[in-house]
């Protein structure tokens, strides 16, 4: 009997405090059993159930990329009982991981296309995985021009600051960072994500867009993308929902007849338009 509910055992190798508010941490995990590292093959956009045994289990998008072998990374905002506990964990602690779960960013549909990646706040995790995947030398030729707009309320809340600095210098992607209001020392864009998107992204009939962020950001970004020539079939987003099993059985993450855990979390806007607006 293969028990799908058993977690891999993971050791916390590194914890990064991501924001001055101290409510956002990135956890880098390694597999206790090296065979698990081989078995746990994932794609950008997938998620996993992370568990602290005795406390609970919750789904998080995987922030690392498949090419970063042997480790799995998650960025977690303190929001409830489980995340409060996870934030108290220390390097060396053993936690559980079940996954990968769900579909991924539509890699086949992205091949040969220009990619427009739009992120807001701490929802940048699986987008980061996708970007890291694209710029891996063996993958880069599969994709056209890559434009990224990433916005936050203030500079301190940017995830993966060191990596963003490096990306700003790269020639194989265009990273546009923005914050809501001017801040001292900030040398990038100032303004909301939809507005900056309109400013920096060129109209395209070839591009595919991946959008993740707070609902309000998505709401105002979609019309901008449509104006730039991206129809709903070529805009993808990733949904969040309460999930327990992660394999389409326990029931709670349904939107109409789709389960976010199994049929998602990635959906095109065209697919979402056909579902009840109950998420």
């Amino acid at each position: 009997m293969q028990n799908l509910y058993l977690p891999y055992q993971m050791r916390i190798e590194k914890i990064v405090e991501e924001s001055p508010e101290k409510d956002l941490k990135t956890f880098e995990l390694s597999f206790l059993d090296s065979q698990d590292a081989v078995d746990c093959k994932y794609l950008p956009g997938q998620f996993a159930e992370v568990s602290i045994l005795g406390i609970g289990e919750a789904p998080f998008g995987i922030a690392s990329a498949p090419c970063e072998t042997g480790l799995v990374r998650f960025s977690v905002k303190k929001a409830g009982l489980f995340t409060e506990n996870l934030h108290q964990a220390e390097v060396g602690d053993i936690i559980g991981l079940r996954g990968p779960l769900g579909n991924s960013w539509p890699l086949e549909k992205l091949k040969g296309k220009d990619i427009v990646i739009i992120g807001g706040g701490f929802a940048f995790t699986t987008l980061r995985s996708m970007i890291r995947f694209i710029i891996e030398p063996k993958n880069r030729k599969d994709f056209g021009q890559v434009d990224i707009v990433y916005g936050n309320r203030n500079p301190g809340q940017m995830l993966y600051k060191e990596e963003l600095e490096e990306w700003l210098t790269r020639k194989d992607l265009n990273l546009h960072l923005t914050i809501d209001k001017p801040a001292e020392g900030w040398q990038n864009y100032v303004g909301f994500v939809p507005q900056i998107t309109e400013q920096v992204i060129k109209p395209s009939h070839n591009a595919v867009s991946l959008v993740c962020g707070p609902p309000i950001m998505i709401k105002y970004t979609l019309p901008v993308l449509e104006k730039l020539g991206l129809n709903p079939e070529r805009i993808y987003t990733s949904l969040e929902m309460k999930m327990k099993c992660g394999i389409g059985m326990c029931g709670r993450c349904n939107i109409g007849s789709k389960y976010v855990c199994k049929d998602g979390p990635v959906f095109s806007v065209a697919e979402l338009e056909k579902l009840p607006s109950e998420y």
Partner: peptide, 24 residues
């Protein structure tokens, strides 16, 4: 009706992962 919840019962160092019926 087949929805379920997943939870755990803990006593000291020992715990059991359980599932139980749940409802929408």
């Amino acid at each position: 009706c087949h929805c379920f919840d997943i939870a755990s019962e803990v006593r000291g160092e020992d715990g059991t992962k359980i599932r139980c019926w749940d409802c929408c």
